[in-house]
């Protein structure tokens, strides 16, 4: 292994007086003073949130307004701090989406427990739960920090969906029943 010896050069006279360094330093700070400040005055000005930001986890609906979660409870199991609590429920026979069979009756995420790890988003087979751009979350009571199902859908809104998996399944089922299997 090649060894490179760095010669430690003794300080020159000018350096030992400190003065040139101090003057150079003063110039640096002067230049800084002339620059505009980089402060973002937070409550008045908001930062631009990048697209892939992982904020508060939310539930989303697909473009047809169907709630995507099928209450498989994978997220509940994977959530490291056990922030998620799901009460599974069934979709009524008369509904358009009866073929999906299940949907959560209640879905609670306790934001006092959530650590924003994103595992719920990762594990969800239905792409129903997303960590989105909301970053500022405050409440006056412990209860108000628990997001219930209605709140989660309100926060989540709709995200584009390229698969429409359940629609395709339905079409497929109908086509097959027409062909008379």
């Amino acid at each position: 292994m090649a060894i490179k010896i760095v010669v430690r050069r003794p300080l020159t006279f000018a350096e030992r007086t400190y003065l040139p360094q101090i003057i150079a330093g003063l110039k640096v700070t002067w230049d800084n003073m002339m620059r505009p400040p980089v402060t973002l005055q937070y409550p008045d000005e908001r930062p631009t949130i990048p697209k892939n930001y992982r904020g508060v986890p939310t539930l989303i609906a697909d473009t047809n307004g169907r709630e995507k979660c099928v209450s498989c409870q994978l997220c509940e199991f994977v959530c490291p701090p056990k922030a998620i609590r799901i009460t599974p429920g069934e979709i009524s026979e008369t509904s358009d989406n009866a073929h999906v069979e299940k949907a959560p009756k209640e879905f609670e995420i306790n934001m006092l427990r959530c650590i924003y790890c994103g595992l719920c988003q990762e594990v969800c087979p239905e792409e129903a739960i997303f960590l989105q751009s909301q970053y500022s979350l405050t409440g006056l009571t412990r209860e108000s920090m628990v997001n219930n199902k209605a709140k989660l859908y309100e926060l989540g809104g709709t995200l584009p969906d390229n698969h429409h998996k359940w629609d395709k399944k339905k079409e497929e089922a109908e086509r097959q029943s027409h062909e008379g299997h």
Binding site: T29, N32, M33, P37, V38, T39, Q41
Partner: peptide, 10 residues
């Protein structure tokens, strides 16, 4: 103020 300007603050 001056320390703020030097450090890029307000």
């Amino acid at each position: 103020k001056a320390s703020a300007w030097i450090q890029g603050r307000i």
